[in-house]
Nucleic acid binder design. Structure first.
Ligand code: MG
Length: 631
DNA sequence: CGCTCAAAAGTTTTT
DNA sequence: CTTTTGAGCG
């Protein structure tokens, strides 16, 4: 997602690629454009390697080049390479880039590029019978899991969620049932697992947990995967969890295997999900022969943004680790607002002003502040980031009021919302009637009457996915045909590319994530959480809600958040910006049913005054209260 | 069983 | 300030 503008290095002419095998397989043009540090990382010989790379240093690009180099110049067969990405979107993107680098279809066939989950899912499909499931098992999503647990144990929603979390933790840290110390949890775990098996289900965590389980119990299966890949490359390694790390170790048990990891410990933001940055920081200890590469030249951010954001992660201590920016940069705007509404209004007005406003001379514009109106010419150049989704409401309203089109990323995808969710549930059930949980759920939700259930299998027989979905809509959703017409159309549109492969469609639905919906080609502003912004970049970024309570998040004392991780979150957010960065906060905010008067975030205090331009936004007057102005 | 209305609860980030 | 849940009624 680097929008294809990769660096021209000042050193690139000085470097020679004196590689032996390159004659035989042909040189790779992309390597010429890398800078010195990137090139060294790409040309790493063999054995383990860690690439520590700051924001905008071309991590993903370096990884792509490494794969292309292995295939093209080292003659490594693509089926011997496994590349792991963080999202399905990133996998898709990487494959696309590799296709561009290595034209010719045959070169990439057999190459595995996927998320850990999609990789594990493939293993589950192949060996489902070892785990007491059919080939057509379904995936239970996190929401369904809570309902299943609630009904299975007769719990309240909240307690069911807690139990679900315990089970999740067990799976994400890969504890075998015998290793569960708490007797009560153990029995819940066992009953839950029995229920899944009975309904021919796996949960999402099983995509890692069950393959690992299989590897540990069934040597014949392990032998199929052990050393199957000569090169395993992992992007965003700072955010992997224990189960994922153990998966890698199962695939490549040797300490000196060619495991190539790339990431940035300062951008670790998924600790709440079991990710542990220590897998990255301890990599050299665990692999004594590993080479370490550092990428310090950022091709995205300005020096100024790097200097300011660096304060979040207090890396100023190590002078040598300072990143080098693309250019000097312009000051960061820090906007104080009276309320959350005026904050949203400020953002909308600013975007409007930059993109469509009159190009008159502004009194306070000088060279050192840049010229936003010239640098930015598309709505897709803007990102509005927030800590929690609830902040989005006010911003959405303001953008709508100003008729600014936007895409919400990380939102529950439309296919997870009614009535599409139910359409897909019927499709899912018609593919696999063993799913008793789904059967009960469909009847309970009155999506379908019990007597009609037996006719479902016919729906999907020898039909394209689109045809099946159309049949389901015609038969069970005819009443909603008008009000939900758009969603139905969107669904039918989406199914088309899957042809008759309805199972593949289900995989897409089950493993797809919110972040996958981001489309950089749309002419609109991007509204998303800081988490979803990982790996992306924009010329102009707004980070809203820079307040105590929101960032760092601490609205509920019982759920303490990791302050260091919150700092890194702001670091990630700030470093999404190529040139213009707005940090905004409100003195009054209405959130989660409460009025608050938060103090501005302590994180802002760390940024030197000279890097900042302060703005006090005008208070936003609601339309109906404007009369007051004249009284 | 299905509707209405009032009281109560809700607590982040996601592959 | 929502959204969800439960009691009470037709
Ligand atoms: Mg990346």
């Amino acid at each position: 997602m680097l929008k294809g503008k990769m660096p021209r290095s000042p050193f690139h002419k000085m470097l020679e690629i004196a590689e032996d095998k390159s004659e035989k397989y042909g040189k790779l043009a992309a390597l010429e454009k890398l800078n010195r540090e990137q090139k060294q990382a790409v040309l790493h010989d063999k054995g383990p390697a860690a690439v520590i790379a700051g924001p905008g240093t071309g991590k993903t690009h370096t990884l792509c080049c490494r794969i292309a180099y292995l295939i093209q110049e080292q003659g490594v067969p693509p089926e011997k390479i496994l590349a792991v990405t963080f999202t399905n979107k990133a996998a898709q993107e990487m494959r696309k880039r590799l296709e561009e680098m290595l034209p010719g279809k045959t070169k990439l066939s057999g190459l595995s590029v996927s998320t850990f989950h999609a990789f594990g899912y493939r293993i589950l499909k192949k060996h489902s019978e070892h785990l007491g499931r059919s080939k057509h098992f379904s995936i239970l999503d996190d929401e369904e899991r809570i309902i299943l647990i609630r009904d299975l144990f007769g719990l309240k929603q909240k307690n069911a969620a807690t139990t679900a979390k315990s089970i999740k933790d067990i799976k994400q840290s890969f504890k075998l049932p015998g290793e569960i110390n708490d007797v009560h949890i153990f029995s819940l775990f066992e009953s839950y697992e029995d229920k899944l098996k009975e309904s021919d289900l796996f949960d999402l965590d099983d995509c890692l947990y069950r393959p690992l389980f299989l590897f540990s119990q069934t040597p014949s299966v392990l032998s199929l995967y052990k050393n199957r890949y000569c090169h395993v490359l992992v992007d965003e390694f700072q955010d992997i969890n224990s189960a994922q790390y153990q998966m890698i170790k199962k695939l490549m048990p040797e300490q000196d295997a060619s495991l190539y990891i790339i990431g940035d410990p300062d951008q670790a933001i998924y600790g709440f999900r079991g990710s542990d940055v220590r897998f990255m920081t301890d990599f050299l200890k665990d692999h004594p022969t590993a080479s370490l590469y550092k990428l310090k030249q950022s091709f995205r951010c300005s020096d100024l943004i790097l200097r300011a954001s660096g304060k979040m992660i207090n890396n100023a201590a190590h002078e040598e680790d300072m990143l080098i920016g693309l250019h000097r940069g312009v000051k960061i705007n820090l906007a104080e607002n009276t309320t959350d509404k005026s904050e949203a209004e400020f953002v909308a007005r600013k975007i409007e002003d930059i993109i469509g406003g009159l190009r008159f001379f502004s009194m306070d514009s000088d060279i050192s502040e840049g010229n936003e109106k010239e640098d930015i010419n598309s709505l897709s150049d803007f990102a509005v980031l927030c800590r929690i989704k609830e902040q989005m409401k006010a911003i959405e309203k303001a953008l709508n009021d100003h008729s600014i089109p936007f895409q919400k990323v990380g939102e529950t995808p439309f296919f997870r919302e009614e009535p599409i969710r139910s359409v897909i549930d019927i499709l899912r059930f018609s593919l696999n009637q063993e799913n008793l949980f789904l059967k009960q759920s469909l009847i309970k939700r009155k999506v379908i009457k019990a007597k009609n259930i037996s006719s479902l299998p016919d729906i999907t027989k020898n039909k394209s996915t689109t045809k099946s979905v159309q049949t389901i809509i015609d038969r069970f959703f005819f009443r909603q045909k008008e009000e939900a017409e758009d969603s139905f159309k969107r669904l039918l549109n989406m199914t088309e590319k899957f042809g008759e492969n309805t199972e593949e469609f289900m995989k897409y639905i089950s493993l797809g994530s919110g972040a996958d919906t981001y489309d950089p080609s749309l002419e609109c502003v991007t509204l998303m959480t800081l988490h979803a912004a990982k790996g992306l970049e924009f010329p102009c970024v707004f980070i809203t809600g820079c307040e105590e309570g929101i960032l760092p998040y601490s609205l509920f004392p019982s759920h303490k958040s990791d302050i260091k991780e919150e700092r890194r979150l702001l670091y990630v957010g700030m470093t999404r910006a190529e040139k213009y960065l707005y940090l905004t906060y409100a003195k009054k905010r209405y959130i989660q049913g409460k009025h608050m008067e938060p103090r501005r975030s302590r994180f802002l205090d760390a940024i030197e005054e000279e890097l900042i331009k302060k703005i006090h936004s005008k208070p936003f007057q609601e339309k109906n209260s404007q009369m007051k102005l004249f009284s």
